[in-house]
Lab assay of single mutants.
Amino acid sequence: MSIQHFRVALIPFFAAFCLPVFAHPETLVKVKDAEDQLGARVGYIELDLNSGKILESFRPEERFPMMSTFKVLLCGAVLSRVDAGQEQLGRRIHYSQNDLVEYSPVTEKHLTDGMTVRELCSAAITMSDNTAANLLLTTIGGPKELTAFLHNMGDHVTRLDRWEPELNEAIPNDERDTTMPAAMATTLRKLLTGELLTLASRQQLIDWMEADKVAGPLLRSALPAGWFIADKSGAGERGSRGIIAALGPDGKPSRIVVIYTTGSQATMDERNRQIAEIGASLIKHW
């Protein structure tokens, strides 16, 4: 067993022997301040990774656009098919120029040779490549099948209805392509620590998230040296922004954090800054 596999296998073990965790309302004060600064709703939840206990939450059962955070769930569904012998990570998928959609920095470079399922998941999570996500959605049967996968996990809230990039439209009061912070946090925890996926697939999923290259201005910008984070960000229309993450000190994750916002007129930089400040408060009061 590799060191990384050992780390993920012992996530519940280490967490069980940690000192009790206590909620700190100071972080919620910052979440509410972010709402004021952005002029928009902000949803927040913080779960203990081992027990699933909610440590703090704000608007945990209000719907927010998922945006690209759905790509972690998508690759979880792909990995479940791999575990069941219905898919192979090494299978190569070929596609054409007509398949390319807006923001496809990886797939646009491989029109000639195609990409493997493993490479597509890596591109979808680490670079948020939209064509990679659409190609992977095709392998599982489309958005409705991802929703069905989530329902089978016990998540009857999260739903995907459309493809990239239309799913980022974020129309107010439109339930399409949305989740709730509580539902997303619980589902992410199941994917990373539950028995739904094999140990190898859980490790692969967290490795992809740990290698995320496009979430630097968010929670990662607030992390002290030595902290662990595996995350996936999302951005959408109407001032929408979000991030889902597993993080913790001492090089291992111990909490799940989900943050979503929508309806702001603020710039992307300002949305990023507010999420980073929430992260800084979380870490300060850990």
Rank of each mutant, 00 (worst) to 15 (best):
R159K: 13
C75G: 09
A182M: 15
E46W: 04
T139Y: 07
D36Y: 13
L218V: 04
Q203M: 14
A211I: 06
Q88M: 11
K190D: 15
F13C: 10
G142M: 02
Q4D: 08
A132P: 00
M184Q: 04
C121L: 05
E62S: 08
I54N: 06
L19Q: 15
K190G: 13
D83F: 02
P25M: 10
S80C: 09
H110K: 12
A183W: 08
L205D: 00
I54F: 12
L136C: 04
R7D: 07
I259G: 01
W286H: 04
E119A: 10
G43F: 01
K71P: 00
N272Y: 02
E62Y: 08
A77L: 11
R202K: 15
E61W: 12
P217Y: 08
T261S: 10
G43K: 00
T198K: 13
T179V: 02
L38Y: 09
D83K: 04
E61F: 10
Q204M: 15
I45F: 14
L49H: 05
F64L: 02
S201L: 06
G39S: 13
E61A: 12
A182T: 12
D174L: 04
G142L: 01
V78T: 07
A148R: 15
L167R: 02
Y260V: 07
L19A: 15
V117D: 00
T267I: 09
P181I: 04
R91T: 08
K53A: 14
I259V: 13
H24Q: 11
D83N: 04
I11W: 12
R91K: 10
A185T: 03
E169R: 11
L218H: 03
R92T: 11
M127F: 11
E270R: 11
C18R: 01
V214S: 07
E62A: 09
E87V: 09
S80A: 11
T261A: 09
R41A: 10
D177M: 01
T158L: 01
E210H: 10
L188W: 04
A185P: 00
I206V: 14
I278K: 00
M115Y: 03
T178F: 02
L38N: 06
E277A: 11
H5W: 05
Q265D: 12
H24E: 12
M184D: 00
A123H: 03
Q97D: 13
T178L: 02
F14S: 08
C75P: 01
L89I: 07
L205V: 06
E237D: 13
R92Q: 10
A245N: 01
S57G: 11
G76D: 01
A16T: 11
F149H: 07
D207Y: 14
T27M: 06
G279W: 03
M67S: 10
T112D: 15
E56D: 12
M209L: 08
G52I: 03
A15K: 04
F70V: 10
H285P: 02
N134H: 04
G114D: 04
L49Y: 12
E61V: 12
A9M: 14
P253T: 08
T262M: 09
T187S: 12
G263P: 04
R41N: 10
H156S: 11
A40G: 14
K284Q: 13
A170K: 06
L282P: 00
N168K: 02
E108L: 09
M209E: 01
I140G: 04
A280L: 11
R7F: 09
D155E: 04
L74N: 02
S264W: 04
V31L: 11
F22D: 07
L192T: 07
